[in-house]
Structure formats: structure tokens, C-alpha cells
């Protein structure tokens, strides 16, 4: 004899006739004498019939059409070049998740571009000295750095001193280089000592570099003014 648990453990095989004769008889004897297991056995048979008799669901009319579209994209992906494959990665039907992720990506790229532009503007620029450069960039209180097309030079009245050409200047560099730009210099021209000074000053037109030459024992004389203005 077996108990209910063991009988029910073999119930599927029992109703399907998959048990060996000896075991089948043992379960049969138990089911014959146990109303509980007899009910379970009967209900299990009915469940099996119910599952077996469930109606078949039909596919929608667009099933194969959509499948063919997906297969076409799949072929393009596997056979085409990278450039031709790109559109195949886009979903056939618009999906909110995809659209949202694309929007996020666009925002991130936009922020990155804006930030990199700002960073570029904030980058300290340099002041170059060259005799041959023709480009001078000016600075104004409202803008960090703006290119100026026309050449500008700081020259002495005798064209003998080295030319100062301010290629680019930023407020930071103005601060950093103020000492240099505004330094007093001294050189000798035609056996005459000249004391000179370059001064940077803001005017309504922009940054102005003024060079003064101070011949010995003479009052300061303004030689040339270069205004870095638009």
C-alpha cells in the first residue's frame, strides 16, 4: 500500500498509462480505496482535457508583414556596409524608450558642446611677440577675446625698437602680463638713451596700449597709440 502523497506523485504517469504494470496496479488500488485521490485523479484528467482543448489563437494579419520587415533589416545589418547598416538599427515602430534615450543623448551632446565652447573662451590666452605677425586681437570689457583683422603694432617713433604685437589677450593675461606690458624699458638709439614705457588702459573703445618714450631729462612724450577696438 502507498500513501496519498506517493500516489499523487505518480498521478500524471498513472493517468497517462506510463507506469509499469505493477506500479500502476498499486496506484489503482490506492485510488479505488481513497476518495480524495480518486477526486484528484478525476480532476487531473479533466484539467488535461481542458488544456488539450483550449482554442488556438490566430496570428494578426500583420504578423508576417512585420516579420518580413524585421528580416529585411536583419539582412541589411548582416550584409551591408556600416553606413548602410545604421538605419537598420532604428526601431520599425517608434518606441518611447528609444525616443527618450535619443533626446537625452542630444541634450548631453548639446551641453558638452556649450561647455566646451565656454571652456575654450575661458582658457588663458597668450601674448606673443613677433616682428612679422600682422594680426592683433583686441579685448573689450564685455568679451573675453575677439579677433581683429587689421594689423596693429606698437612701434617707437624711430622704428628701431622691437615691435610689440599683441596677438591675443584675455583679462587673465592682462593681469598676468600687466607687469611686463607696463614695464619701463630702456634702450639706446643713436647714442641716446631712451626711457620708454608701455601702458595699457581701458577706454570706451577697448583696450589701449600706449607707448611713451622718455628721452632723458625731457618730459614724457606720447609716441604712438594703438587702440585695440573693433
Amino acid at each position: 500500500m502507498i500513501d496519498c502523497k506517493r500516489a499523487q506523485d505518480s498521478m500524471s504517469d498513472f493517468i497517462e498509462g506510463l507506469l509499469e504494470t505493477e506500479k500502476h496496479n498499486i496506484v489503482q488500488t490506492h485510488v479505488d480505496g481513497c476518495s480524495l485521490c480518486a477526486s484528484v485523479c478525476e480532476r487531473m484528467r479533466r484539467v488535461r482535457d481542458l488544456l488539450n482543448g483550449l482554442p488556438q489563437v490566430a496570428s494578426s494579419p500583420t504578423f508576417e508583414h512585420i516579420l518580413k520587415d524585421k528580416l529585411r533589416l536583419e539582412r541589411e545589418r548582416s550584409e551591408g556596409t556600416l553606413w548602410r547598416r545604421l538605419p537598420s538599427y532604428l526601431p520599425i515602430r517608434p518606441r518611447p524608450a528609444f525616443a527618450f534615450s535619443m533626446a537625452c543623448l542630444a541634450v548631453v551632446i548639446g551641453l558638452f558642446l556649450v561647455k566646451s565652447t565656454l571652456l575654450q573662451k575661458r582658457q588663458p590666452l597668450f601674448i606673443a611677440e613677433s616682428e612679422h605677425s600682422t594680426k592683433v586681437e583686441r579685448i573689450s570689457p564685455s568679451e573675453d577675446t575677439v579677433s581683429l583683422g587689421s594689423p596693429a603694432r606698437l612701434v617707437s617713433d624711430r622704428n628701431e625698437a622691437p615691435n610689440y604685437v599683441l596677438r591675443k589677450i584675455s583679462p587673465q593675461h592682462l593681469e598676468l602680463q600687466r607687469g611686463y606690458l607696463s614695464s619701463t624699458w630702456q634702450s639706446q638709439f643713436n647714442r641716446e638713451y631712451i626711457l620708454g614705457q608701455t601702458r595699457l588702459q581701458w577706454t570706451s573703445e577697448g583696450l589701449q596700449a600706449v607707448k611713451y618714450v622718455l628721452p632723458s631729462a625731457t618730459p614724457p612724450r606720447r609716441l604712438q597709440t594703438v587702440t585695440f577696438s573693433p
Binding site: 498521478m11 504517469d13 480532476r43 487531473m44 484539467v47 488535461r48 488544456l51
Partner: peptide, 16 residues
């Protein structure tokens, strides 16, 4: 077989 049996037992209980 064990899974099928347990599933059927559960289903007959649910549908009892």
C-alpha cells in the same frame, strides 16, 4: 515529469 505532475496537481486544485 515531476514538473508536469506538480503543475497538474496545482491546476486541479485551482480549478477545483
Amino acid at each position: 515529469k515531476s514538473r508536469v505532475n506538480r503543475a497538474r496537481l496545482r491546476l486541479q486544485e485551482e480549478l477545483k
